[in-house]
Amino acid sequence: MNVFDLLIVNPMTNALMLLYGLLGNSYVLAIVALTLIIRLLTLPLTLRQQISSIKMAAMQPQIKALQEKYKNDPQTLSIEMRKLGFNPFSGCLPLLIQFPILIGMYQAIIRTLAVTPLSLLELGSHVYSFLPSLAQLVPIDSTLFSIFDLGQPDRFLIIPILVVISTYFANKVMTPPTTDPTMQQTNQVMQWMMPLMFGFFMLSTPVGLGIYWIVSNLVGVLQYFITKPQVDRARALHAAAASTTGAGAASSLASQKPLFEPPRSKVQVKSTGRINRSASTATREKRPTPKS
């Protein structure tokens, strides 16, 4: 058994079946409940991604200046960008970490719905033996409103359309605003491309996965509004830090408690003028003035 199955697919598969049994043999409710649980467990990642996006957006003017200054010296540019605290993957990484979860969910849905004999056989080898009562739930009732078969693609195209709409809506709401024209352009492309890509994907995948995606989007939007005050505060702080190079902003930042605090060993002064509140005063005084 591979590690991916052991750590992601098997727990999801068994959890989905357990929830199906607990929620009156309703597979849709089981998907909704598991989506909520997954969203809750990945909340730190989601928040980190949002904060990271805000940071990157706020840094754009400085990045542009550096790119202009070191356009013929990519090595120095890279060093300076790193000094600035710029990490192109910091926004993507939490998002990429969520892909295994999506793939795991896909496999868990395929297995539990067991549309084919092979998937039912695979389900058997992944169900925990210490939960023998799960076997009584098999085969899972995969019908919804007597219209959809959750294990098959939606021939009415209702679910793919809802996936496109909910993904667009979620992206629209949750993408942080930016003043950088390139970023704006990128965001615009992504806002259309991602929903269409997922909608296309849903044309050939089971309705059950589409429901997971729709619920996940809606819960994501709800989560966004719940955490919005914190995120707005972080945005304001980073915007202030990016636009101000003086110590005033730094001390303003230093007086605020950040949403995520890095480990003490990694605390260092950034040449952007943004200072972690735990940096020493002596260090702060030696901070080089940004050349931008």
């Binding site: 993957f89 990429l96 793939i103």
Partner: peptide
């Protein structure tokens, strides 16, 4: 960096599509 970021996202999406669907028909029974 923006291009890189978009590329990473597109590649991730493509990887997802490859991982989750398509390919030659494999038997199910």
């Amino acid at each position: 960096w923006q291009r890189l970021r978009v590329s990473v996202l597109v590649l991730a999406g493509a990887a997802l599509l490859v991982a989750c669907g398509g390919g030659e028909p494999i038997p199910t029974s």
